[in-house]
Write a protein that binds this DNA or RNA. Sequence first.
DNA 1: ATAACTTATTAAACGTCTTTAATAAGTTCT
DNA 2: AGAACTTATTAAAGACGTTTAATAAGTTAT
Lengths: 341, 341
Amino acid sequence: MANPKSMKKMILRSIRTTLLEGGSSTKAELSDKLGISFPTVSKFLADMEKDGEIISLGLDESSGGRRAKRYTYNPEYMLGLAIFLEKSETNYTIFNCFGEIKKQGKVSSVLKEDGLHLLTTHIEEIITANPKIRSMAIGVPGAVDRGRIFHIPGYEQFKDLDLKGYYENYFSIPVAVENDMNAAVLGYYHTRKRKDQSLVYLYSGQNGPGAGIMINGTVVRGSMFFSGEVQFVPQYNERNFQEALMNGSGTRNETISEKYEIDAIGRLVASFVAIINPHTFIFCQDEVNEATMDKIKENSSTYIPAEHLPAFQVGDWKQDYLFGLQNLCLEVMVDKISNLS
Amino acid sequence: MANPKSMKKMILRSIRTTLLEGGSSTKAELSDKLGISFPTVSKFLADMEKDGEIISLGLDESSGGRRAKRYTYNPEYMLGLAIFLEKSETNYTIFNCFGEIKKQGKVSSVLKEDGLHLLTTHIEEIITANPKIRSMAIGVPGAVDRGRIFHIPGYEQFKDLDLKGYYENYFSIPVAVENDMNAAVLGYYHTRKRKDQSLVYLYSGQNGPGAGIMINGTVVRGSMFFSGEVQFVPQYNERNFQEALMNGSGTRNETISEKYEIDAIGRLVASFVAIINPHTFIFCQDEVNEATMDKIKENSSTYIPAEHLPAFQVGDWKQDYLFGLQNLCLEVMVDKISNLS
DNA sequence: ATAACTTATTAAACGTCTTTAATAAGTTCT
DNA sequence: AGAACTTATTAAAGACGTTTAATAAGTTAT
């Protein structure tokens, strides 16, 4: 699409994102940065200010002439709702456009019989109590294809459900639905400034290891939404990654420390480097510590030239997951909502 | 950017691509498909016809009313130049907008001392002889970062050279520079209709195997342009992919047939599936035949659930490489050239 | 053959963004 | 304090795409 309407949308979106990301701006700065003429920026900002979407911060120090007016986004103008569907419970968070958490709550898990209906009721209550909510993001422990739950082991009643479509229709607000690992890697991605990077977020949880992967700024889903199922990577004559981590026993340690674990992960890192050569490799902070990470790094470098190894980082999974959902929320907010006449 | 100028560009680009991809169109079809109003399409087409960029094909059969005029792109309006820098020789191809080859030639390799100067002279001659050339793409056996040759083993005099910038400045036409494997996977991608897919193009050449990887429609380059260096993937207790293919001897067979080769490749496929889960896996036609491919497929499925295996295809590497460069050429043509007032 | 009906194209009026010029506000130098 | 100079903002004119209405071209039925 290339017409005046889409142009208006693009302008509004670009102003919103720069204001939200940059903190504050003057009209001239926006005009300059976005390649939009001053009068146009002026008109949009006037409308947005009248609507309460932006707030004047007063005048800048003079740079030799008339002082410029500075504007900032009003974070309370719209709120977002993030919902985490988990096995044992369902958490939700209400936050403003700056990502500041306004309210947090927990209800019993909706991943059970008649869970959809239950979830709908909960959301209804939350939205009625917080009418400023303009979008929501739902994280689910399963594969998601454009808002449709594609595969969700253990909770078959949610399978093939177009959750996004259903709730967008029901609540008339934009909705994002995303897999938990993908949301986490997305969240981590957005907390860093460097964009367009490739990330791998590894967690070696109890029910099999998994990885969230991001390349060139987009989440990798795979043809069958099977990407990141690293447990199947063949690593030794007779063992794949999963088997190597198990080391013959039926269970797994919570934290990683044993030599066989280090070598398995080291090999996995090497495989990732040889295949996609990511910028950063993220481990979960409750699974590895700094010392282990150093050992893994050393181990990987026996398989692959050390200069090509990624940066090793620890991430707070829970936190990144929340950030990811928040970001999805904000994205659809910035993109879809238009209160301008 | 969001302003009238960028809009004009977008409109022109979208008309060009649909005309080139779809073969031919009427004004109404374009207006409909692109979401651009009829009068605007009309105006653009009028300009383009006057300029010789499009040609009228006469009138459609009537669908009950006045017959619509049908237009097609004039393939000879612009030509593209693809140049392949190889160890032993330098090939070039001149083709029109439909990808039809107009001329082909070969000169001695420029990958040697003072090669840049030599290449420049060659290009100068070609362009003078074919003044309709409006863009060029250069394929190089090395890592390329936004037109700059980043790493090119064996030809150090080309290292850190911004070939794209240099020639764009010198010849005043848009230039694309791309790694050979990446160009091949891009070429394969564009020969298929299904878009937004993930592909892996594997070749197990003499000087170590390599893979071109495409995910979500973009080429994967990696943080250090090291992606696809699959030789380093650890596969057995004591062997990585490269060593497994060698099987202890110092050399490699041209075609793949031995059991140890099948298992190594089967494991590599499994690793790819577990990590990025691609739609399609492409082998070079001179390296594997159908029977071998079936064996590999069977072998992979011992490591990973068969339903997640990608489609297996054979590709003509040389051909796909050419297509890739052609596509890069066409892309910059469609994107950058604007002969409209 | 002509009237009634479809569909394609052209023309005029309107909205939106940009460019350019004019005005307002602030700073610095004398 | 006032003139000269910067810089921000507003206003008017111009460019471009869309919408809506009018016209041209073709088909079908009587």
